[in-house]
Simulated scan of single mutants.
Amino acid sequence: MSFIRAYLRASTKEQDATRARQDLVRFAEERGLRIASYHIENESGATLHRPELQKLIADAYEGDVILLEQVDRLSRLNSDDWNKLRADLKAKRLRIVALDLPTSWTMAGGDADAFTSRMFEAINDMLLDMLAAIARKDYEDRRRRSAQGIERAKLAGLYKGRSEDAELLFRVEEALRAGLSWGKTIKTVGCSRATVAKVAQRVRTADPTAN
């Protein structure tokens, strides 16, 4: 008998790592399944040094399911680190089920015949590698845009934040400049209202015509 183990992650302390918990619960309940454990942490997906993820892998039994909201919650790793993580998961034959990867949903029940299971496992391995590569590229693109945005802010005398908050602040600024409301920005980025207020003030100072 396999267990469903939910993994929820957010990149910074300000973000709500439990945001998708109800979506995972709903997914499991619709299939008559129950989540046996939750592993929640605020760590970057670009590093392998994630205590809760490592605890999950260590505690899991062969054939258990790791349930995710999105593949990028598991990995924004570079190629070498992703291959290491994949090897650890393979060693215990852990099955990855992600809400954003419908082909993986069949793996949640574990009641498919041997041929179907192997077919879906092969498809999901390919798609996982592809989505992990996309997540890494998105991470690198965000870091580059964040660095560019910070440099512009420094030149304007606006940026005084800590380096570890740079990506979060830039994502909030991107959302506001794209016209998202404060509430939508908080939900999309996963930050506090105070953070949105701070960035909104900076945006207005830099561009008095901005909304």
Rank of each mutant, 00 (worst) to 15 (best):
E14F: 11
Q15R: 11
R21D: 04
L24G: 10
V25R: 15
E30Q: 11
R31K: 05
R31F: 05
L33G: 15
S37I: 00
E41Y: 10
S44Y: 07
H49F: 14
R50I: 01
E52G: 05
L53F: 02
Q54R: 15
K55F: 06
A58K: 15
D59M: 13
A60H: 04
A60S: 15
L68D: 03
E69T: 07
D72P: 01
S75D: 02
S79L: 12
W82N: 01
N83T: 12
R86F: 05
L94E: 05
L94D: 05
V97M: 07
V97Y: 06
L99C: 09
L101I: 04
L101W: 08
G109N: 15
S117H: 03
M119R: 02
F120K: 04
I123N: 06
I123K: 05
M126I: 07
I134T: 03
A135M: 03
R136F: 05
E140H: 04
R142A: 12
S146P: 01
I150P: 02
L155P: 00
G157S: 09
E164V: 01
L169M: 02
E174S: 09
R177H: 00
L180C: 04
S181P: 01
K187C: 00
A194Q: 09
V199E: 04
V203M: 07
R204L: 14
D207Y: 05
